[in-house]
Each structure stands twice: as structure tokens, then as C-alpha cells.
């Protein structure tokens, strides 16, 4: 296992690179997902309320 982590001595660079990708993509993914959920929930609630008024 430690050989695997050592990455042939380049561990810091390789793992940092993968960490950057992981953090940026999951960050963007989660933010977009949360924003979608919140806005769609608000919009649907509004539509239901307007339909109730009609």
C-alpha cells in the first residue's frame, strides 16, 4: 500500500493534482445541484400557490 501512495516518489504532485480535480469538480457539482434544488423548490412552491389562488 505504501508503495502505491508513494507514487514512485512523486506522491505530492500526483495526489495534489487529483485532489484539485476532486475538490473543484465535486464543489461545482454540489453547488450546482444545491442551487437547482433550492430554486426549483421555490419556483414549484410559487406555481402551486398561484394555482391554488386561481
Amino acid at each position: 500500500m505504501s508503495g502505491f501512495l508513494a507514487m514512485g516518489g512523486y506522491a505530492p504532485y500526483i495526489w495534489t493534482a487529483y485532489a484539485v480535480v476532486a475538490v473543484w469538480l465535486t464543489g461545482l457539482g454540489l453547488v450546482s445541484w444545491r442551487r437547482m434544488r433550492q430554486l426549483e423548490a421555490a419556483a414549484d412552491a410559487l406555481r402551486a400557490q398561484r394555482r391554488a389562488e386561481r
Binding site: G29, S32, W33, R35, M36, L39, E40, A43, L46, R47
Partner: peptide, 12 residues
């Protein structure tokens, strides 16, 4: 996801 969010924002 972002398109659906933007459309919802437009509706709001």
C-alpha cells in the same frame, strides 16, 4: 442542473 436552476430562477 445549471440549466434547470437558471430556468427556475427566471420563473421566480
Amino acid at each position: 442542473m445549471r440549466m434547470r436552476a437558471d430556468l427556475a430562477a427566471q420563473r421566480l
